[in-house]
Design a protein around this nucleic acid. Structure first.
Length: 285
DNA sequence: GGTGCACCTGTTAC
DNA sequence: AGTAACAGGTGCA
């Protein structure tokens, strides 16, 4: 069938762009490497294969996925400009230079929210296991070039699952958060499109009311999904990094430290956070 | 408003 | 080998 035929398309990317570093940066957890050179994942319900080409990306998909890919990688962000704006801080400039081409992603909000609820007191391998188990168990299968991928299950689907089922998947104490969250989101109270239009503060206040969502998870969703690049998620790694470089950070609580970062880096805070996180996490590797 | 603790589970450090 | 500490936090006393 013609509708099922897969085609290759190309997107040129001018900025420094490191596909591998971005996919493995702990923003997304379900993209997998297939046939050695492709990253396989689901964008807007369709299977997509991506690989780096000399001057951009090759995209394999059944429909036209170019727009979705450009949105996902925030190709409109100019990393050179961002680097210039933050490089007065030598510490940050080094992190940027060591991890050139690392990008903030614009993820689908629901999966992003669930991902970071699952991230609580966890680690990247475990988060990956949880999310892949969720998708495989409850998500719709999608095929591309012989690879079976899974769309992330809708809130309505997860709302119909019991806490015990999720615990059996290894989600632990996060299972109850997810069940409660799913029924709230499935009810339609949360409008992610409106949150995208709202201010950082407004969107954050809405997110924090949700079960399992505190300041840190909210900042992740704001920065990695809802176009709020002033979001500055502070986890253990980022806090350590800041405390080493700026000793006063030791006496600041989450809100104080986040505000301090936002005053310093403004709309680039999300990028600064991601580079500091990556740099600290890969330290010594 | 701040502090301390419990919470699942898997991995790593002694 | 057995045990403790730790991991992209949050909610609740």
């Amino acid at each position: 069938m013609i509708a099922d035929s897969v085609s290759s398309q190309h997107i040129s990317v001018k900025d420094p762009f490191d596909l591998n570093a971005t996919m493995e940066s702990g923003q997304v957890f379900r993209w997998e490497i297939v046939d050695r050179v492709w990253y396989a994942g689901v964008l807007e319900q369709q299977g997509v294969l991506l690989r780096r080409a000399n001057d951009g990306l090759i995209v394999r998909s059944k429909g036209n996925a170019l727009e979705a890919v450009a949105m996902f990688f925030r190709l409109e962000d100019d990393l050179h400009t961002i680097f210039t704006e933050v490089s007065s801080d030598r510490f940050v400039a080094e992190a940027f230079q060591k991890n050139q081409g690392l990008r903030i992603l614009r993820q689908e909000a629901w999966e992003c929210l669930v991902s970071f609820i699952c991230s609580s007191v966890s680690n990247i391998p475990k988060i990956k296991r949880s999310l892949r188990a969720l998708a495989k168990m409850y998500g719709n299968p999608v095929e591309i070039d012989g690879h079976i991928l899974y769309a992330f299950p809708a809130p309505e689907r997860l709302a119909a699952v019991t806490e015990d089922e999720l615990r059996d998947l290894g989600l632990g104490f996060r299972a109850k958060y997810l069940v409660d969250l799913s029924s709230i989101v499935a009810s339609g109270i949360v409008d992610f499109c409106k949150l995208r239009e709202a201010t950082y503060q407004e969107a954050k206040e809405s997110l924090i009311k949700l079960p399992g969502v505190g300041e840190k998870v909210a900042d992740c969703v704001l920065a990695f999904s809802l176009d709020k690049l002033e979001g500055f998620p502070i986890d253990r790694w980022v806090r350590r990094s800041l405390e080493e470089r700026y000793p006063p950070a030791k006496r600041m609580n989450y809100t104080e430290l986040r505000s301090w970062a936002q005053n310093k880096w403004g709309r680039n805070s999300g990028y600064v956070q991601q580079y500091l996180f990556q740099d600290k996490r890969l330290e010594g590797k």
